[in-house]
Amino acid sequence: MSPAMSLHADLLGRLQAIARVQLVARLQDDRLNFPGANELHVFIPDIHLITAARRVEGGYQYGTNHPVLLEAVVKSLRALKLASAPAGEVVVYQIGDLFDLWRQVDGLDPNANAASAIQNDQASLLAALRDPDLNAQFLLGNHDYDLYRFPNFDAWQRSFVLAPSVMLLHGDVFDWVEKLPAELKNLVLFLFTASHPAGTADLEKLRPLNNKQRGGRKFRDFIQNQAPAPTGKWRETSDDGGSWNVQVEGTAPKEMLLYLDEARQKCGEANRQFGSALNMAVIGHTHQARIAVHDTEDEFFTLMDCGAWIENCSTADDPTPRPNAQIAALGANEARIYQLAPLE
């Protein structure tokens, strides 16, 4: 077993020790061009934290799923990272919308008091996520975009390039990028390159777009999906190889291919403009966990949507809503998405 396959197995073992784990999707393909034998990249998707008081005050009908389990998962990832070093490297990312400033406050929070309040209210979870030994990397989502304004969040980015082939971003850009005039599209394209990472000035320029997406909505009943998000067919976990529940363009239902084309096109543009070799996008934002591929003779492109820890999902076998609680991992040309639940 290669070191990175061992890291996949190690991660699974640790998750199984603290949670009921099911496999949502798995893609094993050398064309991912992400062979890194000694590294595993782990993605924690949207969490949308607000304070308990705000949840009551705002009349929100839903909240973050299984926060106690999430904290246990994060601590387990820290242990995995430390145990794997130095032979293996485990990198953990929280891929945006950790804080839900759009639900915590109306309008702009000019001095980060909302973010601090959430952090104080969810102190142990945030302490675990921001543990220096875990050294989690954070993306700015759309619900916590404004954090770019505050020095304590200077390390948070809008995107990462995981060399050589993977673009990691929250995914909200796909809501609106194709509707933009050319001048703005060019500005956004810089998100898709490692050579010109978006700085504070760029984020300030794009803030009106983020604000426009908020559009005065209150999100009282839902954020992304009023009905449980379809995620295809899950199975129990085992370490036998082989892809599972991959949504292939041309055969999968359209709802399972959301943003596959947008991501492929944007990565293609970036490749042409900046000489990169992006052929995979990893996102959150939609709260719909899936792996989707565009697979033709000329091109192989993958979208991994890591799901969420808020709102619900359903499977092809069972329409019963289940709380989203997903985590994804990538390494050794293999991508996996797991669904977690508390042990009975």
Binding site: Q119, L126, A127, P132, F153, A155
Partner: peptide, 16 residues
């Protein structure tokens, strides 16, 4: 004010 900068620290303190 919750944005307190202490360059002696490895990263921003949590909680703020």
């Amino acid at each position: 004010v919750t944005q307190v900068i202490d360059a002696r620290n490895r990263q921003p303190e949590v909680p703020d």
